[in-house]
């Protein structure tokens, strides 16, 4: 069924359009101002950051060319031989990848445990003393803000080359990151169980154990898994500064122009990271699903 849509008379349309213009004028002005500020900041940053677009355009071909040169040589007649030649270091690389995963795992677990211990001290709803909360939060912030690779650089000097500095660096960074996220979870919990335990005479430890922990545990595990995912990426580059894992071989291959090794190692890292992402995402969804079912 078609009916004619009534058109407004010209004057009325004009009036409506004017009102609309007035209504959005302030918003438009803000948008333009924001854009202008953004562009000015981008230009300033470009000057500061030494952006040379001419050189970029001139040298851009090197970017695909680099990847092309890392590509392994394949021919149909000898695909299998080519493949085994490309992945010649597979046993060594899988071992190093395993090390990388273990560094990430051990670091994450150690960091999660200390973050778990600290997060309750950083929650204003469980600790009455402002000073303790403040100090704990600053400690966590310090652990979080100093990049892990800087910790690793310093630890390599203190503990020597190997996995130990990598594990410690990741553990410290994870303590800071998880401690903060855990504390945020704890601050959002239901206060009634805590009051219940306190009212029936529980000590502070008992309040935390029976009032807070049951509410937050599945969330904590989910955050820890997410952090593990991030730490796997972090552990892959720990070797750049000599702190164990596959990074050492990667930076060597890049620096010494072992092109096909670069692509092989990169591919292995990417596949591993994707697998880990996939598995942890599954587990996390299940955990959060449990959480939802319980509520």
């Amino acid at each position: 069924m078609r009916t004619a849509v009534p058109e407004f008379p010209e004057a009325r349309l004009q009036e409506l359009a004017d009102r609309y213009a007035v209504a959005v004028a302030a918003k438009r002005r803000r948008l333009w101002l924001g854009t202008a500020v953004l562009i000015a900041a981008a230009l300033a940053a470009g000057w500061m950051g030494d952006v040379k677009l001419g050189m970029f355009a001139e040298n851009f071909w090197r970017f695909p060319a680099y990847f092309a040169s890392t590509a392994p040589k394949f021919s149909f007649s000898s695909a299998w031989v080519d493949l085994s030649e490309w992945l010649w270091g597979l046993p060594r690389w899988t071992r190093l990848l395993g090390d990388t995963l273990l560094i990430a795992y051990v670091g994450t677990l150690a960091g999660a445990i200390s973050g778990f211990a600290l997060c309750f001290l950083a929650s204003a709803n469980l600790v009455k003393s402002r000073a303790i909360v403040f100090v704990t939060r600053r400690v966590l912030e310090f652990c979080r803000t100093v990049p892990e690779i800087v910790f690793a650089l310093i630890f390599v000097l203190a503990f020597g080359l190997g996995a130990l500095p990598g594990v410690l660096a990741i553990a410290i960074h994870t303590t800071g990151a998880l401690g903060k996220q855990f504390a945020e979870v704890v601050e959002n919990i239901d206060i009634n169980p805590i009051e219940g335990v306190a009212a029936s005479g529980g000590s502070w430890i008992q309040i935390v154990r029976f009032g807070a922990v049951p509410q937050v545990l599945s969330n904590f595990v989910s955050y820890a898994l997410l952090r593990f995912e991030i730490n796997v990426r972090g552990a892959a580059v720990m070797g750049f500064v000599g702190a164990g894992g596959i990074g050492q071989d990667l930076i060597e291959a890049v620096r010494k122009f072992y092109f096909t090794d670069v692509s092989a190692i990169l591919l292995l890292i990417i596949v591993t990271v994707m697998l880990i992402d996939f598995v942890t995402e599954r587990v996390r969804h299940r955990l959060l699903g449990l959480e939802g079912a319980r509520k």
């Binding site: 990426r233 892959a236 580059v237 930076i251």
Partner: peptide
């Protein structure tokens, strides 16, 4: 894939280009 490669690795690659 882009996300799976760490920033440091990207930096290493781009240093070779520019």
């Amino acid at each position: 894939t882009m996300r799976g490669v760490d920033t440091l690795i990207w930096a290493l690659i781009w240093v070779g280009v520019v």
